[in-house]
């Protein structure tokens, strides 16, 4: 393949990465922004989403699209319920202390991994894509499903943006993020908002995972890379900034896709991680964020 088409392919792969990453990172960003909790178990909600998608799809018989669609709805709901339970049973009892919650979510990470290993097993399993249409470009054929993933992610991101900026729920969430005590004084049920945000963040990761399962497989250790990449995205984009998160996801996803086509992925990861650590050291508000109050 010539350089031009090769670059196009790399860009398309990068866009698919970005689309999935933006959703996952947005969940992490929301939880941090509103609750000031760094959820280390976020990658495991992604993993649970994928594993549950396989389970749900395997229960539904008939056309693969049917199983996939049911999984797309049911799996995030179950993950949301699990997140809600973790929030009630663990995070709330710690009064959302930043350091304690990190330790606790590390514990949750291991518990979820263990649960997946016990009930799902160590194998990697795929979910069949809902359709197998290939878009024929002059140089190569490209999976129509991957393009659909980009579209679905864009829709979900737009929906989340609309909810945050144009609805009452979003207003309440932003008020809680801006000033927890004042929000409480104005009658906003802060603990309910926290529970809702934590569940929503986990569900975003789960949806992203369900969308990816037909492309990559479900495995009990699959949460590690998304966690690290989401951290990178959220840090570069500025913690708690939705616009920054989406831009950073594009940046990271595209460059990850393009760099790993042309260079070794290990070196790409080393450079990306190092750069992000440096951003956090020298510009803690992120590249697009504004300084904390």
């Amino acid at each position: 393949m010539a350089f031009g088409p090769h670059l196009l392919l790399a860009t398309l792969e990068g866009l698919v990465n970005s689309a999935v990453l933006a959703l996952t990172a947005l969940g992490l960003s929301l939880v941090f922004g509103v609750m000031r909790v760094v959820n280390v178990a976020h990658g495991e909600f992604y993993m649970l989403g994928a594993v549950l998608a396989w389970w749900v799809a395997s229960l539904v018989s008939g056309h693969p699209a049917l199983g996939f669609l049911v999984a797309l709805v049911v799996s995030p709901l179950i993950v949301g319920a699990i997140a809600l339970a973790s929030e009630r049973l663990v995070l709330r009892r710690l009064e959302y202390n930043p350091e304690s919650t990190i330790v606790a979510t590390i514990g949750l990470l291991y518990i979820f991994q263990q649960a997946a290993l016990t009930f799902y097993g160590p194998e990697a399993r795929p979910v069949e894509a809902p359709f197998s249409y290939r878009v024929l470009l002059p140089w190569f054929g490209y999976s129509g499903y991957k393009l659909a993933v980009i579209a679905a992610s864009a829709l979900l991101l737009a929906g989340t943006w609309y909810m945050l900026t144009r609805t009452k729920i979003g207003l309440v969430m932003r008020a809680t993020q801006y000033d927890r005590e004042t929000a409480q004084a104005f009658g906003i049920p802060v603990t309910k908002v926290y529970a809702g945000v934590f569940a929503l963040g986990a569900m975003l990761a789960a949806v992203a995972a369900v969308l990816t399962v037909p492309i990559s497989q479900a495995h009990y250790l699959m949460g590690r890379d998304p966690l690290l990449l989401s951290f990178i995205v959220v840090i570069i984009g500025g913690l708690g900034s939705l616009r920054g998160t989406v831009i950073a996801a594009l940046l990271v996803g595209l460059s990850d896709g393009i760099i790993s086509v042309f260079y070794t992925p290990t070196l790409a990861k080393i450079i990306a991680t190092l750069l992000v650590a440096m951003v956090l050291v020298f510009r803690p508000q992120g590249l697009f964020g504004t300084a904390a109050r």
């Binding site: 590390i106 518990i111 263990q114």
Partner: peptide
């Protein structure tokens, strides 16, 4: 799982 449960219970 043991490490996870121990961390959560301890904290």
């Amino acid at each position: 799982g043991i490490v996870g449960v121990a961390l959560v219970l301890l904290i």
